[in-house]
Design a protein around this nucleic acid. Structure first.
Length: 425
RNA sequence: GGAAGGGUGGCCGAGUGGUCGAUGGCGGCGGUCUUGAAAACCGUUGUGCCGCAAGGCACCGGGGGUUCGAAUCCCUCCCCUUCCGCCA
């Protein structure tokens, strides 16, 4: 949610923002609703009159007088108030609905562009190994090694699920532990193990509701399976006023993530890239506005550190205006090199939201002990997506025999296992 | 799932249908006293919206209703606690 004051003070900025995002949005209707809403605020005068007369009635009755005439007068006034309040309510509902669907204002440094094609590569790390053989995609490797099983996952669940077995399951568990240990012990994040079903308010708070309900799995009880730990982590401090000196607050969580992937049929359907359930270690910060850019850079470095520890080549991309999501004001993707697939694949997405989510979720802080509360800035990023990291390891560390060497950094977490060999049935 | 009791300001906790945005306590802030501190005492201390301001409006879990007037009465939903049942 953006600041209402912007609508009045700088509608052109919003219009320009929509243009950069290549988004269709009926801003004129929103502006008209806002104007009407403000007109209707004059009901407050009527309410003031009513309050005043009611007080007089109380006074008269206490003194034993007859207040019938006044009562009739107030009754008529109340009807008029009710009429205006009804229109105000309708206008407000429409206004709020449209506000909730208005995308965030972009950070000035977001490159302008229409689609993925215009994303800007900022830097690369690591060299791709040279292969003396044709490197295989991870799904072939995983299947041949018997550590990834799509067929049985589909049998017990449906397509777009996977089951990890043996060293595959152990590899993912090792990754989770490496990431959490690094982020908590070296990077100063507090580990969280949050509820994986969140309510509507929390989904609204991060901006996936009301616009993106079809992407979520919903229970009969009306709760949503978390599509990312961003949802519970951002709602830890929902409706709270934080102490300024405690910021930034840094949290990390390992969670499964559930996405319906509606409308994704046929896209990148193979392997570990796009699943209904995947696992992710998330990084999340609540910061003061002036800290935001620097803290996002640190967060990016925290995520990149994991890729460097695993010695997986990657590049950092700045998403362009047309490729960015609805909620963030700036997004950087980390893309891991996948030799088997022959391309870079997103393995982490790190975004800052300004006060967009804080406004929706009601998260504020006091800059000084006695000062007025202000909205915090929120940001988060994957650190990293586990399934895609497994894929990157399989593809980067594969041998000609189809086995996979275990990265040095992971061996202590896998009982010293140096290499993943075909699993015996 | 069944039964009972609750949801009030940063926290605890009062609250009669009318001067209650809400008594009181704790905590916070300012002050008096003190060499300093503690104690004691005095004052102050919610949020949002509209407004240059004065001020006005709204908010006592959410929504609806009764009434001239609702924190207070009625309906409904949600949440929490305790007991019972079930259960990793």
């Amino acid at each position: 949610m953006i600041d209402r004051a912007l609508l009045r003070d700088n509608p052109d900025l919003i219009r320009e923002n929509l243009r950069k995002r290549h988004m269709d949005y009926d801003l004129d209707t929103l502006l008209a609703l806002e104007a009407r809403r403000r007109e209707l605020l004059q009901v407050e005068n009527l309410r003031a009159q009513r309050n005043d007369l009611s007080k007089q009635i109380g006074q008269i009755i206490r003194e034993g007088g007859n207040a019938e005439k006044l009562k009739t007068q107030v009754h008529a006034l109340a009807e008029e108030i009710a009429n205006q309040e009804q229109e105000l309510g309708e206008v407000e509902t429409r206004f709020e609905g449209m506000m909730a669907a208005l995308p965030n204002i972009l950070h000035p440094e977001v490159p302008e562009g229409e689609s993925e094609e215009q994303n800007v590569e900022l830097h690369r790390w690591g060299e791709s190994r040279s292969f003396e053989f044709e490197p295989k995609p991870h799904w072939e490797l995983g299947e041949a090694l018997g550590i990834l099983d799509w067929e049985r996952a589909a049998k017990m669940a449906s397509a777009r699920f996977v089951m990890d077995l043996g060293a595959g399951a152990a590899l993912e568990r090792a990754l989770i532990n490496l990431m959490l240990d690094t982020h908590t012990r070296k990077h100063g994040y507090t580990e969280v193990s949050p509820p994986l079903l969140n309510n509507e308010r929390s989904a609204f708070g991060i901006g996936v509701l009301p616009k993106f309900e079809e992407d979520l799995f919903k229970t009969r009880e009306g709760l949503y399976l978390v599509p990312t730990a961003e949802m519970p982590l951002t709602n830890i401090h929902q409706d709270e006023i934080l102490e300024g000196e405690k910021l930034p607050l840094c949290y990390t969580a390992y969670t499964p993530c559930f996405r319906s992937e509606a409308g994704a049929a046929g896209r990148e359907s193979r392997g570990l890239i796009r699943l209904h359930q995947f696992h992710k270690v998330e990084l999340m910060k609540y910061v003061r506005p002036e800290q935001a850019d620097a803290e996002l850079e640190k967060l990016l470095r925290n995520a990149e550190t994991i890729l460097e520890m695993l010695e997986i080549p990657y590049r950092r991309m700045a998403l362009c205006s047309g490729d960015m999501g609805f909620q963030p004001r700036q997004t950087f993707d980390l893309e891991a090199w996948m030799p088997g697939m022959g391309k870079y694949v997103e393995i982490s997405s790190c975004s800052q939201y300004g006060d967009f989510q804080a406004r929706r979720a009601g998260i504020r802080f006091r800059p000084e002990p006695e000062a007025k509360p202000e909205y915090v800035h929120t940001m988060n990023g994957s650190g990293l997506a586990c399934g895609r990291t497994v894929a990157a390891i399989l593809e980067n560390y594969q041998t000609e025999q189809g086995t996979v060497v275990v990265p040095e950094a992971l061996r202590p977490y896998m009982g010293g296992l140096p290499e993943i060999l075909p699993r015996l049935p």
